[in-house]
Design a protein around this nucleic acid. Sequence first.
DNA 1: TAAGTGATGCAT
DNA 2: TGCATCACTTAA
Length: 222
Amino acid sequence: MPRPLENRAVPPASDFQPLPQSFYEPSAAKVAPALLGHFLIRRTPQGICGGAIVETEAYLTDDPACHGYGRQTPRNRVMYGPPGRAYVYFIYGNHWCFNTVCAREGIAEAVLVRAIEPSFGKELMLAARPVQSELDLSNGPAKFCQAMGIDRTFDGVDLTDPDSPIIVARNLRKTQFCKERAPLITTTRIGITKASGLPLRFYLAGSAFVSRRSRQAEKQIV
DNA sequence: TAAGTGATGCAT
DNA sequence: TGCATCACTTAA
């Protein structure tokens, strides 16, 4: 029986410096690739867990696939708010997905985090998501949310506040991390029907924790 | 490849 | 109020 992580915050983890709000102010199309290699960290009473982001997708204003497309609703509310917040939504009756809100207040853009490499608190994540292979722990948008105990209660949390239960922290070795997992692939987004041809998915092809490989339409940025 | 799951939001 | 749709996962 999976044991969900407690949804309470703990004192600051001073080892981790959250990325500042200015990091999220550009369009999600810029932020999504820039996020690769930085750390998604969950702070719980039992300790921290999380790891480096290796796969993202951008959802833009005027993008029919974006949950914020059209107008503000109860669900997409935080996407319209200030950048640097978490947008967490429920999908397919079972799963949670985690986004970082981008662009200035009033512009609904976000980056869907699709996969992380489990680097910290692996035992906490395995307790919340028991899997045979570590490779299945966090190689999908709903998988790492289950492993890290991310659900609706975190919708809207400030990812730039060191006291938050979820932060995105700077990886001082990001350049090296990405180089070791090159190339950086830009391709089309997964699981959508609207605007499905846009090149707004980004992943480090050298990481074993990417959710799915693209067969074609790959473009290297390195 | 397909079923399961339930909230969401638009159509009625 | 009804119902198609859905940024997924798992078991086949």
